[in-house]
Amino acid sequence: MQLRHSRLAHSPWLGGGAAALAVVLWALVPLLAADTQALPPLRLAALALLAGALGTLPMARRRRHRDAPLSPAQRVMVYLGVPLLVAGAVGACFAAFRLAPAGEAALILYTWPVLFLLASRRLALGRLSAGTVVGAGLAFGGAALLVLPDALAGGVSGAWGGYALALLGALCWALYSLASQVAAWRLGERLPHLLLVASVMVGGLSLALEGTHALPSRDALLATAVLGLGPYGLAMLAWDRAMRDPLAHRLGNLAHAVPVLATLFLVMAGVTTPDWRLPLAALLVVAGSLTASREPARHGPLRAPRRFRRR
């Protein structure tokens, strides 16, 4: 029995399946958010994070052996800094979808794998290769393709606030992904508590800025629960499992498919009007991400810093 459990735990299909599940669930965020228009964005973020915290409580992995306790500084980073990143990412995401078209905002939001790649490469290698810089330029060029026509036509408009919030959400997700690679912090095991703290943070900000509102409809609450349990609950646990896989450096490339899938779901559902810029921008984001993740042959495959490797 122990041998079978060990083989399952180290199966490459388990890590790949977990990464694919997280990617599909994240790609559904813009579409699910479109069904919750009755809720203010910050209130929606607080409820979705609360649903994610309650949903992941029985699924969070618990260790039976003792680990080294966190230092006071690490506790502040884990229980204050990380929830702040999650609150910023989810709150900025939903606010961006209200201020800007969902398709454009989603593509900008899902440039976070490129930002994560830039930061992790800089920490791992102490430098950025030419391919990484060129790939990042292509990815951000795809996002700029969606923004520049509005800038040339009418200058700064209301949608620009949504674009800026989408970029802020991308930055928060990139920093969260970087923090999740610190093995000693074990964010996957602490995920319910982190989501709960993030929900309280966003909920307090919602009361201060959005005031009180009537109770949402049953359909809006159901969509919010699905949003929290899926993309911000199960998906984050699945991604944490994938990033602890020995092939994590390859599985991470699956995140580059999120903007394409998100755009496809929005167009198929009729939320976003088909536009020639959307597929071209998505292609540039994916091509740039894959180019940035490829290291020159003379340097060999990228390996995570020693402090980020699984122990």
Rank of each mutant, 00 (worst) to 15 (best):
M1G: 09
Q2P: 08
L3P: 13
R4K: 09
R4E: 11
H5Y: 01
S6K: 04
S6Q: 14
R7S: 10
R7N: 12
A9Y: 02
S11W: 04
A19C: 03
L25M: 15
W26I: 07
A27N: 09
L31Y: 13
Q37P: 03
A38R: 08
L39T: 05
P40F: 05
L42K: 07
L50N: 07
G52A: 05
G52T: 00
A53V: 05
T56Y: 08
P58D: 12
P58N: 11
R61H: 13
D67H: 14
P69Y: 01
L70H: 04
A73D: 06
A73E: 06
A73T: 04
V76H: 04
M77C: 13
V78W: 02
G81L: 07
P83D: 09
V86G: 13
A87R: 02
V90D: 12
A92G: 15
A92V: 01
A92S: 15
F94R: 02
A96Q: 10
A96L: 07
R98L: 09
L99W: 06
L99Q: 12
A102S: 15
A102P: 14
A102R: 14
A102K: 14
A106K: 04
L107A: 11
W112A: 15
W112C: 11
V114Y: 02
L117E: 04
A119L: 15
L123R: 12
V133E: 06
G137Q: 06
G137Y: 01
A143W: 00
A144E: 05
L145A: 06
P149W: 11
P149Q: 06
D150E: 11
G155I: 08
W160N: 03
G161P: 04
L165E: 10
A166T: 10
G169H: 01
G169T: 00
L171T: 14
C172Y: 11
C172I: 03
A174H: 02
Y176P: 04
Y176D: 04
A179F: 05
S180L: 02
S180A: 14
V182H: 10
W185Y: 15
L187F: 03
L187P: 02
G188I: 04
G188C: 08
E189K: 11
L191V: 03
L191K: 00
H193C: 13
H193T: 15
L194W: 09
L195Y: 09
L195W: 09
V197F: 03
A198Q: 05
S199Y: 05
G203D: 10
G203H: 01
A208W: 14
T212F: 11
S217N: 08
R218D: 15
D219N: 11
L221D: 12
L221S: 14
A223Y: 07
G228S: 09
P231A: 12
G233H: 10
A235V: 07
M236W: 08
L237S: 15
A238V: 07
A238N: 03
D240G: 12
D240A: 07
R241V: 11
R241L: 13
A242D: 09
M243G: 10
D245Q: 03
D245R: 01
D245I: 00
P246G: 13
H249Y: 00
H249G: 12
H249M: 07
G252F: 00
H256S: 10
V258I: 14
L261A: 15
L264W: 13
L266V: 13
L266Y: 05
M268H: 10
T273P: 06
P274I: 02
D275K: 05
W276Y: 11
L280I: 14
L284P: 07
G288E: 08
R298F: 07
H299C: 01
G300E: 06
L302Q: 13
A304E: 05
R306S: 13
